[in-house]
Simulated assay, not measured.
Amino acid sequence: MGLTSKTTGATQVITVESDRIDAAMAIQFKEDMRRETETECDRVILDLTGVEFIDSSGLGAIVASMKQLGDGRRLDLSGLQPVVEKVFRLTRMDTVFKLFTTLDDALAETLD
């Protein structure tokens, strides 16, 4: 599982460098996310542009990553491919996360 990270002001952008987040890589994803989000950024954007498949384990790993951020920090998602976005909508996780069509759209929104 590969993640890359960059910080812009109070926002950290983490890009998933894999085409899938599934049971085979969910544990590694959670560990990598924990390590990457040790910063003090108030907002983390997870860029899923390259992710073409996600299963329930992958969804759970993203939820766990959000929870480990703690109170006062936010995890937003960008670049969801149609199949991945459908998983978030079918499971109603689109009510838990803010979903943005592109990373630029996510970056354009400021924190409240």
Rank of each mutant, 00 (worst) to 15 (best):
D55L: 07
L46S: 04
V63K: 05
A108M: 04
V16L: 02
L46W: 07
K67P: 00
I27K: 15
G72Q: 12
K86N: 10
R35P: 00
F97T: 06
G72I: 08
D71H: 11
A26F: 04
G60E: 11
T91L: 09
L46T: 02
G72D: 09
R92D: 04
A64N: 09
D104N: 13
D105H: 14
M66N: 02
A23M: 10
L77N: 10
S65A: 15
G2L: 12
D112R: 12
Q12G: 01
Q68A: 08
A23L: 07
M93Q: 06
G79N: 12
T39E: 04
R34G: 07
L111E: 07
G72V: 09
Q12S: 01
M1T: 13
V87Y: 04
T95F: 09
G9I: 09
L48G: 05
G9V: 12
A10R: 13
F88T: 05
K86V: 00
Q68Y: 03
T95Y: 00
S18G: 05
R89M: 02
R20S: 15
L3G: 01
L80S: 06
K6W: 05
D104C: 00
L90A: 04
M33Y: 05
D71I: 05
V13A: 03
L77T: 08
I54Y: 02
D19H: 12
I54M: 14
V63P: 02
V84Y: 04
V87D: 01
G50A: 15
T4Q: 14
S65P: 04
I62F: 10
T8A: 10
E52V: 09
